[in-house]
Amino acid sequence: MTGLPDDAAAWAMLALAAALVGFAKTGINGIGSLPILLFATVLPAKESTGALLPVLILADLFAIRFYSRHVEWRVLGRLAPWVVVGTVSGAVVLYFVDDTLMRLLLGLILLAMLGLQLWNRMRPKAVEPKPPSGLARRSLAAGAGIGAGATTMMANAAGPVMILYLMLSGFPKLRFLGTMAWFFFAVNLFKVPFSVGLGLISWYSLLMALMLVPAIAVGALVGRAVVHRVNQKQFEIATLVVSGVGAGLLILSAATA
């Protein structure tokens, strides 16, 4: 970033995005695509991925505070080397793309992640999934790790990949939330040097994130309070529709640029 936004409408949109980040980290993760879209609306698409990263890290701290006792470290250990591969691959892609192509990539990645969420919702659930073992477990960890690393580096959009992976692994709710919290905190910290090297994070990015801390905190506290009190099915359907429309608009804006 070369400067902070200078109009109230932009700050209002950024504050809403920050609150949604906090809510997604501690409540319903399915809305995690909306802050990506809001940041890409206010800022250049490529620049927005770096500007959002400090906000995500601050929100991760709230999630760790609430759910850290339930983390599954063995799963994170299996994912770690593959996430490194995916993150480095994503950084290479970011180095070569311009803002128009990045807007297109953001839209396509979000649509792909929405497709994963839809597939997970529509697949039969009459029988509880059994945790994979042996070669299947290692293959699943490799695919999820590379996919999560690449999508989080390019678009901060690895949430649906990890949701699907942990669901297929048969995680109960609290262990799911705790493992997600530590996974994204570690991965987002790992991404910082790449984002700095690519010129995506600056002192302005950090200052903006600090200014958005109150919005992050409100979102995180609300997310924790309402996660057990809402009709999650209807909420997620609405979120998928809104995110799908937003991703389509990103692709359209890239095509007409």
Rank of each mutant, 00 (worst) to 15 (best):
V213D: 05
I163F: 07
F171C: 01
I201R: 04
L111K: 00
F96W: 14
G197C: 04
K173H: 06
F184Q: 08
V192L: 13
A91P: 00
W182Y: 11
G219P: 07
N188R: 05
L116W: 05
A158C: 04
P193E: 03
V93L: 14
L106S: 08
K125M: 09
V213M: 14
L164S: 02
E128C: 06
Y165W: 06
V161M: 12
N120P: 00
V218F: 11
P81S: 13
G147P: 07
M153P: 02
M154A: 11
A144N: 03
V213L: 15
G197H: 03
G115E: 08
G90S: 03
V218S: 03
L168W: 13
L177T: 04
G90V: 05
V213T: 14
L198M: 09
G223A: 12
S133W: 05
G197I: 01
A186K: 05
V218K: 02
I109K: 09
K191R: 15
W119L: 13
D98M: 08
R103A: 03
L135F: 12
R123A: 07
M167S: 12
A157K: 03
G115P: 03
W82Y: 15
V97M: 10
Q117Y: 03
S195L: 09
M122T: 11
R138T: 10
A157F: 04
V88R: 03
M122Q: 13
R121L: 14
P160E: 13
G199F: 10
L189S: 02
V218C: 09
A112G: 15
T87L: 15
M153T: 06
L106D: 04
W82H: 15
M113G: 11
V161S: 04
